[in-house]
Amino acid sequence: MQDHLDELESKTIYILREAYNRIKPLGMLWSIGKDSTALLWCIRKAFYGRVPFPMIQLDTGMEEDEVYEFRDQLVKEWGFELKIEQCPPEEEMDQTLPPATRAAARKTEGLKNLLAREKYKGIIVGIRRDEQSMRAKERVFSPRRFDGTWNYKDQPAEFWDQYKTDFPEDTHVRIHPILHWREIDIWRYTQRENIPIVPLYLSRNGMRFRSLGEKNITFPIKSDASTIEEIIAELEVTKTSERAGRSMDSETEDSFERLRQSGYM
């Protein structure tokens, strides 16, 4: 009998295998956080221990030190191809965006540069519907124009596990294999499968990162959860949203929409 986590995993593996069969060339954005690392684990499951396309880090140079350490350690242990894309500086961003949103937009621009150079047709991204109400409206296979923009008012029909896999030349597709997972599922799965995590997620001195981003725009929350088990217990009862520590989500009502529309993850 498949349990709840097995079902989530089976669906994710199905999506990954569809992407690998239908879309070439393919790359995945690995933010080194809990979601994309759990997804990376699913990739190894889908392809029998292999990671058959590159992991890409959009680097702003602003991650916490522990994040870089964890990254280098995991690449060494699991042996996969990592490409590091340096994002353009904040001065080059749209100056009408509020400050934290502007900082986040650096990743969008880094991704655009990468796409223009490497011509990826498919980019796998570890976002989830329950994180944020804009992401809740996403498709699993979600087309973008080559400049990265998202035509959210006219998304493709997607049902019965049949995905849009053919696109015009100037388009790339974002593939979201863990869109159907919740935050608590990620933690239960991480615990069950014994997947390594950046230690910043665990509480030190009464604080921990619930969502991990660049240090200038992400803040830790008050928490005593110092093990995954305690994180799960905390999530069972919390009334605080996951991205409360991410300032770019809520600077203005439409800040995240503007980010996503122009190509943010």
């Binding site: 329950d130 109400s133 804009m134 809740a136 409206k137 959210y152 008012k153 998304q155 929409e257």
Partner: peptide
């Protein structure tokens, strides 16, 4: 709560499907 897009709120119409727990 569900109509997250600006266009949906401004026109008071649901354009796309969403999920909430």
């Amino acid at each position: 709560l569900l109509d997250a897009f600006q266009a949906e709120r401004d026109q008071a119409v649901t354009i796309d499907t969403t999920q909430i727990w």
